[in-house]
């Protein structure tokens, strides 16, 4: 009943049809997208590393997070300390480091798209203390327009652009890293 009433109120109230503008392509920079991506991600507090500089991802994780007690990952090259397929979302509160695949990077804001299938649990990239993403260097676009052309936002039930560690400036505008979700974001370019 409300629906009908609301829609009819809107129908009566709405202005005459105005045309839908086309979204044109915007000129991109000369520099390679991966270069801009690195700089932007760093500005948002992410750490960007080249996978090639390490002896495998597993090694790198242990080197970067020597204190980590629980590493969670669906990737075959990382030994997961928790059986992701057989646990509840709330079990993930113990995760120190989550290692996931990112699908696409965006140079203008250092954001990475993570598809639902790569998270296993939707809450994993948030509830983990530290988030590590693997991102193929050739999967970085310049801006959000290109990004939305490449991804399918409704492929899974949930999809996420993550552009840094969880942060807040709610107390006197002081930037604090590590608000409610992951305290750090490390991106390995592969």
């Amino acid at each position: 009943m409300s629906k009908k009433k609301m829609l009819s109120a809107i129908k009566t109230a709405k202005p005459p049809l105005s045309s839908m503008p086309a979204v044109p392509p915007f000129p991109t920079e000369q520099r390679p997208a991966s270069e801009i991506f690195g700089a932007q991600a760093a500005q948002s507090g992410s750490r960007v590393l080249l996978a090639a500089d390490f002896d495998g991802i597993s090694q790198a994780i242990h080197f970067l997070y020597p204190q980590a007690r629980c590493i969670a990952s669906p990737l075959p090259q990382v030994t997961s300390g928790i059986e992701l397929k057989n646990c509840e979302p709330s079990d993930l509160q113990a995760v120190d480091v989550a290692v996931l695949n990112g699908q696409l990077g965006v140079a203008e804001n250092g954001a990475v798209w993570i598809a639902e299938e790569d998270m296993v649990h939707r809450v994993l990239p948030f509830i983990t203390q530290h988030l590590v993403l693997l991102l193929p260097q050739d999967q970085i676009v310049y801006n959000m327009h290109e990004a939305y052309q490449q991804i399918t936002i409704d492929e899974g039930g949930f999809g996420l652009f993550v552009a840094g560690p969880s942060k807040t400036a709610d107390i006197e505008q002081s930037l604090v890293i590590g608000a409610q979700a992951a305290r750090s974001l490390t991106i390995f370019l592969t």
Partner: peptide
């Protein structure tokens, strides 16, 4: 806020 993007841009389509 002058950020190039919010840290999280979440797209919800289906319940888990």
């Amino acid at each position: 806020t002058g950020q190039p993007s919010t840290i999280y841009t979440s797209h919800y389509h289906r319940p888990r």
